[in-house]
């Protein structure tokens, strides 16, 4: 926070938005929760005395206790340690997916909106098609059809080169999950950015920039995009939460991150099978996912109000 306040180049717009955001209690609460979970995701594995993978079959399905704060699962693994590592998975997926989707969406949407013409029609046609395919179906098809051949190719590369990177199955997981989820998320960003660019590109300062003889590239990157960012920031904040829920949903259905790598989704999926006997195995990951998602939405709402003060009642 102080970092932004003492920034030697704070733009008035952003400084005002930050001040309004700070006055919104829910948004600040959301920010704190997100900050806390990020901290846990980064240093969590060093905080816990237990490894998230090591099994201890003597202490299976234990309820919460002093030694295992959130109990243990059916293989005797510490639930808290797995949750903390799950935070890492959740944020990696959320950030990876959102960054990829925003990159694709912003590039296509901005260029389409700024130049218009056939490219614009092509991009809009492409987003319509992508959005018309049921999201879940697309992800399931991508994972089901690509996972096998990619693993085989990686295995073959490993035998050829003996490079251990090809042995890493988590990598395939992440690439596939990131890729397929980004593929279903970008059209929303593309549409949003295109609509913003359409409204900004006719503002007087854009005409003035043209009259100065600036190139289209400079006008788009320095004049149009920075002034079209507000709604995108709100969408990204909400999108991070959505990506986490999506990842959990896909892990729950078995097309997300593969066990034993813990993800909140596959923990919920495992917990659901035994929830009548061991409710803590379901409640703990579900509660964490719910709280973090709500935190992202609070932050998104707060950002929306902070960046569009005129929209407030």
């Amino acid at each position: 926070m102080t970092m932004i306040d003492t920034d030697d180049r704070p733009s008035g717009l952003w400084r005002d938005a930050w001040r309004r955001l700070r006055r919104n209690r829910l948004a600040v609460a959301g920010l704190f929760i997100i900050f806390g979970v990020v901290l846990v995701a980064v240093i969590g594995p060093w905080l816990s005395p237990y490894d998230f993978l090591s099994q201890n079959l003597d202490v299976r399905n234990q309820p919460p206790s002093a030694s295992h704060w959130l109990g243990t699962d059916d293989l005797g693994r510490d639930v808290l340690a797995r949750l903390m590592f799950g935070a890492r998975t959740a944020f990696l997926v959320a950030i990876g997916v959102t960054v990829t989707a925003v990159f694709i969406g912003v590039s296509l949407g901005a260029v389409a909106g700024f130049f218009g013409g056939p490219f614009d029609r092509f991009v809009m046609w492409f987003t319509d098609i992508t959005m018309s395919v049921p999201q879940l179906l697309l992800v399931v098809v991508i994972n089901a059809s690509l996972k096998q051949p990619i693993s085989q190719w990686m295995e073959a590369r490993y035998i050829e080169t003996l490079n251990p990177i090809y042995r890493n199955s988590t990598l395939i997981d992440f690439v596939l999950v990131f890729g397929s989820m980004a593929l279903i998320s970008w059209p929303a960003y593309a549409r949003l950015v295109r609509a913003q660019v359409l409204s900004v590109r006719n503002r007087p300062y854009v005409t003035a920039a043209r009259a100065l003889g600036l190139t289209n590239r400079i006008i788009l990157t320095r004049y149009v995009l920075p002034n079209a960012m507000g709604p995108l920031i709100v969408a990204v904040s909400a999108g991070l939460g959505t990506a986490m829920v999506l990842e959990s949903a896909f892990s729950f259905l078995g097309v997300g991150v593969t066990p034993p790598t813990p993800s909140w989704g596959n923990m919920i999926s495992d917990g659901l099978r035994v929830w009548t006997n061991y409710p803590h195995l379901l409640v703990a990951p579900a509660a964490v996912l719910a709280v973090v998602t709500v935190a992202f939405n609070f932050l998104g709402d707060g950002l929306n109000d902070a960046l569009n003060p005129k929209g407030q009642k």
Binding site: S11, G213, Y223
Partner: peptide, 18 residues
């Protein structure tokens, strides 16, 4: 534009990039 023909526009309030 700019180097041989310069322009000044009507509305100074909105003609500068904020």
């Amino acid at each position: 534009r700019g180097s041989e023909i310069g322009f000044i526009f009507q509305d100074p309030m909105t003609s500068l990039n904020p």
